[in-house]
Design a protein around this nucleic acid. Structure first.
Lengths: 154, 154
DNA sequence: TTGACACCCATGAAATCCCATGAGATACCA
DNA sequence: TGGTATCTCATGGGATTTCATGGGTGTCAA
């Protein structure tokens, strides 16, 4: 498996540790990596994660020097600056940085959500809310579409 | 690890010493270097740093087509001319030059921010401001994009 | 001589590693 | 097909090491 797929809820212990779901772990271990990179999501109240190869690729894609006039890489710099390398312990866990947990509202449980090449870690309740909100938006969009092309659908 | 990733805040003691974060130290030590090179940032109110090797590379690997109108050699000479070598002490610390500290507004704490091939040292509050400003800019850009597709702005 | 600077060691806190345990799922065998 | 053995995985706690930080001493230069 080479993509992050599915949702898994694991416990966060007193030390801030959480087990990375075995399928996710295998995605990064298959690349020969011994840990993941975490960074606060720029758009959602959650932590984002990926193999740290992705971060290093991001860093290497930047121009060799910070010269005036180049602001297109603002996002990359923001991610690189806030990212954090988190190695697996013997049991396949990582330690969630405290400030990341605070930003994502994480306390005792974390929901890993696969996003393909990356994944997110949500507070389970917040994830449910966000997903419900997205469903409502989709339903509304569909209704709006049907309204224009015929009667109210089922 | 071969790139500077993440943010770490350390204390500056009365002697102007500050611990270089262990992950950053390992990046340069992996290259066989026993210290780092510092120079005032040309674009931000902070100190910039990297391995000594990068300064040497800078003198040679200047593309002449990156920025039309900007004298690349001038920038290189500026960096090379102002850069200072700062060796690690036994505990992995460096001594921040006083004039650099003044330019960056550093007093009692310094925030190391990874930038991939290099890193920066900020006054923590100034860093927070700069990052917040950047986030606002990104959010504004995103809003501008969404406006085209019908969302009522906040 | 006096100041600045580099090197040394000490210490507490925090992060990391290690092993143990139990539950659940799977595979295997009768 | 039912039951059992095995394995993986998630979790808990303790021990060890690393790291950041503080201060002292020696050395060199002005």
């Amino acid at each position: 498996m080479k993509t992050f797929i599915g949702t898994f809820v694991n416990k966060i212990d007193a030390k801030g540790r959480i087990s990375v779901p075995a399928p996710f772990r295998m995605v990064v271990q298959a690349k020969g990596l011994a840990g993941i990179a975490l960074y606060p999501s720029l758009t959602d109240p959650c932590i984002e994660g990926c193999g740290l190869d992705r971060i290093e690729t991001l860093a290497e894609s930047l121009p060799d020097d910070a010269l005036p006039g180049v602001k297109q890489d603002a996002i990359a710099h923001l991610i690189i600056g806030t990212a954090r390398e988190t190695p697996f312990d013997g049991g396949g866990r990582i330690v969630l940085p405290e400030d990341f947990m605070a930003k994502a509202g994480l306390t005792d449980k974390g929901a890993f959500v696969g996003k393909g090449r990356s994944f997110q870690i949500w507070e389970p309740a917040a994830l449910a809310d966000a997903q419900a909100a997205m469903m409502r938006r989709l339903a509304a969009a569909r209704r709006a579409e049907l309204d224009g092309s015929g009667g109210p659908g089922t």
